[in-house]
């Protein structure tokens, strides 16, 4: 079976700097995979390559077995690749209802619809409701996003990506900055993501990584340093040296 997401010999150079160094990586169908690495390891560049914000210097990217290397970012979204952002990227002046509705109707090709009122289609409404419930946003649907509590904004951040009905979901530090009191709610929703969505989690927080992922890849200096099960990676002394040792200082 083709991997949900795969890269082969992916390279990105900025001038003389190699930000992504020959990365060959497989995200299996339905995986819960974590990508970790110290600051400056090239995690952000890697995501930007996957989503198409940056074009690779060489190498290939496959989505469900289809070569996506040359695809535009929005085409990749339509093909089932969605991401969240480490720093909230929401629409401050819109409500969560509109935000989710936007993503849902856009996916259904509604963005080309100039005439019908958003929400006049039954299937859009139903899906908004389902997503709002899944991400516990029903009680905040009609508030301005900028007025939401931070934890709710974080949930919305994931909800928007989820509304694109991805087969591959890239979660970029979903719990970053969420206060302890709201953390549990967020982690529970992440854990409850349906299994038919393959998830790549980029994370600093080791508790979250260990509780969520079945596999871990470690990125160091733009290259895959090692990869394995949670067991293997967490006990690997070299990983401790390059990564876990440093993370204590943070």
């Amino acid at each position: 079976m083709a991997a949900a997401l795969e890269t082969r010999n992916l390279v990105k150079r900025f001038g003389g700097i190699v930000a992504t160094d020959n990365v060959t990586f497989r995200l299996e169908q339905g995986a819960r995979h974590a990508l970790i690495g110290p600051n400056g390891a090239g995690k952000t560049t890697f995501i930007n390559l996957l989503t198409g914000v940056l074009a690779p210097t060489s190498g290939q990217i496959f989505l469900d077995g289809v070569d996506a290397t040359q695809m535009r970012p929005e085409s990749r979204v339509h093909r089932g690749l969605a991401r969240t952002f480490q720093i909230n990227q929401l629409f401050p002046a819109m409500t969560p209802l509109e935000t989710i509705g936007l993503a849902v109707s856009e996916r259904m090709g509604g963005g080309r619809d100039w005439w019908r009122v958003t929400g006049s289609r039954r299937e859009i409404v139903d899906e908004i409701v389902e997503i709002a419930q899944r991400f516990r946003l029903t009680d905040a649907l009609d508030e301005r996003t900028s007025n939401l509590a931070y934890g709710k904004q974080r949930l919305l951040e994931i909800a928007v990506a989820f509304a694109c009905r991805p087969r591959v979901l890239l979660l970029d530090e979903p719990a970053a900055g969420v206060p302890e009191a709201e953390r549990h709610e967020l982690l529970a929703t992440v854990a409850a993501l349906p299994r038919d969505v393959s998830v790549l989690l980029i994370e600093h927080d080791m508790d979250l990584v260990f509780s969520f992922a079945d596999r871990i890849s470690v990125l160091v200096n733009g290259a895959i340093f090692t990869e394995g099960t949670v067991e293997e990676v967490s006990t690997d002394p070299r990983v401790r040296a390059v990564y876990l040792g440093e993370s204590v200082d943070e």
């Binding site: 339509h78 990227q89 993503a103 963005g111 100039w114 958003t118």
Partner: peptide, 25 residues
Amino acid sequence: VSPFGLSLRSIRDNPLRARAVGIPV
């Protein structure tokens, strides 16, 4: 108030995210 109009507002608010939702900005 159409989905098209909604997508415009999203572009105004945050083009980066609009792209990430699959909107051809």
